[in-house]
Design a protein around this nucleic acid. Structure first.
Length: 220
DNA sequence: AGATGGATTTTC
DNA sequence: AAAATCCATCTC
């Protein structure tokens, strides 16, 4: 069928450049900051889902008590010790998956958690995946939500972001003002819980734990 | 608008 | 036993 696809015709979605391993193999704080505004892409057969990254968190090395690698080199954390540019997908609370991108040179365990996306392409399928969520800001405004919307689960653990059906693109989109704050949900991590290692686009309605992303909020 | 608790399974 | 969460269901 030759159905016009408005969103893929949009100028803002042209000239995509897939991000390569050199981008990921850098200090984790730089990668976490620079991923804001990049576009996460999931290929599912012939269709593509896209979302702009609006929130990330850095998890840096075995010293960082919030980082899973602080438990040492185990079956679960092995991916984080491996080469950069691979996915680290884990299950949390028995119900949700979270997506990370491995950073830094091989041997140093670190990753960036993708915490929120602003849906750009494939919204109908994302809505279906998210049990018919109405508001666009209910699709990707949290690490578990975006994995559900984009059909990301542990089968993608250790997948290369250069050679799989999951990758990140630079489309020259404007991230706006990028702010930093402490990470979410790591109160157990002692002195590490207060590190300002969470990055997000200021004022973006798709950021998690944002009053703006509540679907019931009054319009005016 | 904010607080609370349940779901559910992997991990060490 | 606790967890890098989400959601429904209370309160005020």
């Amino acid at each position: 069928m030759l159905v016009p696809m408005r969103e893929s015709d949009a100028p803002s979605l042209r000239q995509a450049v897939k991000i390569d391993q050199g981008f990921y193999e850098r200090p984790t704080l730089e990668v976490a900051h620079d991923l804001i505004g990049k576009v996460l892409v999931r290929r599912l057969g012939r269709s593509l889902l896209r979302g702009q990254i609006v929130e990330t968190e850095a998890y840096i090395g075995q010293e960082d008590l919030a980082c899973h690698a602080s438990k040492g080199r185990t079956e679960r954390t092995e991916v984080m010790f491996g080469p950069s540019g691979h996915a680290y997908v884990y299950m949390i609370y028995g119900m949700h998956c979270c997506l990370n991108v491995v950073t830094e040179p091989e041997g140093f365990a670190a990753a960036v958690l993708i915490r929120a996306i602003e849906p750009l392409e494939g919204l109908p399928r994302m809505r279906r995946n998210r049990r018919g969520a109405r508001a666009a800001s209910d699709l990707g405004s949290g690490p578990g939500k975006l994995c559900q919307a984009m059909e990301i689960d542990r089968r993608l653990n250790a997948a290369s972001l250069s050679e799989s059906d999951l990758w990140i693109e630079d489309r020259g989109r404007d991230p706006g003002i990028v702010l930093a704050s402490p990470r979410i949900g790591v109160d157990y991590a002692g002195v590490w819980k207060d590190k300002p290692w969470r990055f997000f686009s200021e004022g973006n309605a798709h950021v998690s734990r944002n009053p703006l992303n509540r679907s019931g909020s009054p319009a005016r």
